[in-house]
Write a protein that binds this DNA or RNA. Structure first.
Lengths: 230, 230
DNA sequence: AAGATTGTTAACGAAATGTTAAAGTCTTTA
DNA sequence: TAAAGACTTTAACATTTCGTTAACAATCTT
């Protein structure tokens, strides 16, 4: 999975050049990364070759109309929010049709601030969704639900237990987690053998994380473990 | 929110007659077609003989409880959204159990407007899904409603189950889909044999998709599967 | 220094999965 | 209504994976 982007990337498709640039400028002042395309085909090419977080599509476009473009985009990515820009002249029933494939739509002429506001809502939502159970650990990214530990495009697949253990440590980064707590939460009992098994897992995690020397899993003798990033 | 084109048909199962009628009236004012049943057996008979778009089930029901009813409904239609109504007294862990088979649940006493809103979300989603039920998978195009998997002008016809499984994986591309989820949604139960049957289907899909080496269906031991396009 | 705790590696065995084929089930067709 | 065909499940066997345990080394505590 991709690392957390600094700027959200917006695909803006608008054939009216001057309007397009007005919107683009406004968005960029709000720390959005905008790719402006002037027709549907160019837009789709851009979408195929670059990652985006959200699309703003005019309905009336040269070469490939916004609705068809949206379908093609959706065939690649079902989740990406799509906002349509519609002309005022558009008939109601047609708008209803569009609504189905759209996450939102705005009727021209619209207030750019209003559009920005709605975009922010979608971005906030998707950040929230993708951030759940996602931990940053030095040079690593740890995706708990997917059981993946990423480092410089290398993916290490973890087992459920490895992932659960790493998560428990990450949740309490820089704090000592008691052996007893780990054992009861993940192993379900805290006898001698479970304890030794856990030590084996700690050893494995250390090996997986050894590419970043800033990361340490420190043992507190007789107490537990702490994960630390210098 | 705008009404959905044709009237959506709701199966409402609630043994508290007065509450049932209140809900029914509210729904009907919102252009929903409601069939109210007072016990689980009647509800199942109704489901067998009439088409529905969504079910709202009370958990505590005479003759056949909501959970069992949901399983029976699922054995006929895996896709239909099911919303449970639970009493406040129900324990958390039990609710978690229900969540597996449920798409949503509401705790009594609840706001009917809220319930209506959630129903609308499901109905809208299913309309949206049926319109965007096409997936691009590396060099393949997958048309779920037509059960077709296309590759360089070659058409491979899939069976319903093959297509449903592939769809479930595609909907959550790059995410691990739990065995349990696949089994409850597509097989309707998650015993040992259903699991083995699923493994056979995974094997088949891998064979169908083997012309594009970029596509992988990865097993997460004991957890589930993930489809990935490099 | 002695005993307890932890680090690390390897081996074992149970369980899960991959794959192919045979056996069942259901529907279509003649 | 029987045979054929399409599809799913079950069986069988090969392969892989994972957690535990054992074994021994290293480290800590007192």
């Amino acid at each position: 999975m991709k690392p957390i982007p600094t700027k959200a990337r917006i695909l803006l498709v608008e054939d009216d050049t001057s309007l397009g640039y007005v919107i683009k400028d406004n968005f960029e002042q709000d720390q959005l990364d905008v790719c402006l395309c002037e027709d549907g085909e160019l837009a789709f090419q851009a979408f195929e070759t670059n990652p985006f977080d959200l699309c703003v599509l005019d309905i009336m476009l040269p070469k490939l109309d916004g609705f068809t473009l949206a379908q093609k985009i959706r065939s690649i990515n079902k989740d990406i929010p799509i906002i349509f820009l519609t002309a005022k002249s558009m008939k109601e029933d047609k708008i209803n049709g569009f609504q189905i494939g759209a996450d939102d739509y705005m009727v021209k002429p619209f207030n750019i601030e209003e559009l920005l506001l709605r975009i922010k809502v979608f971005l906030k939502r998707s950040v929230k969704e993708s951030m759940t159970d996602f931990y940053k650990l030095g040079a690593y990214n740890f995706n708990h639900p997917n059981l993946e530990l990423l480092h410089a495009d290398q993916i290490k697949h973890l087992t459920q237990k490895e992932a659960d253990l790493l998560k428990l440590l990450c949740e309490q980064q820089d704090k000592v987690v008691k052996r007893e707590e780990i054992l009861t939460k993940i192993w379900g009992n805290d006898d001698y053998f479970a304890g030794r098994s856990m030590d084996v897992f700690i050893s494995k995690l250390r090996k997986y994380l050894s590419h970043d020397l800033q990361i340490e899993i420190i043992n507190y003798h007789g107490i537990g473990f702490k994960i630390k990033v210098n």
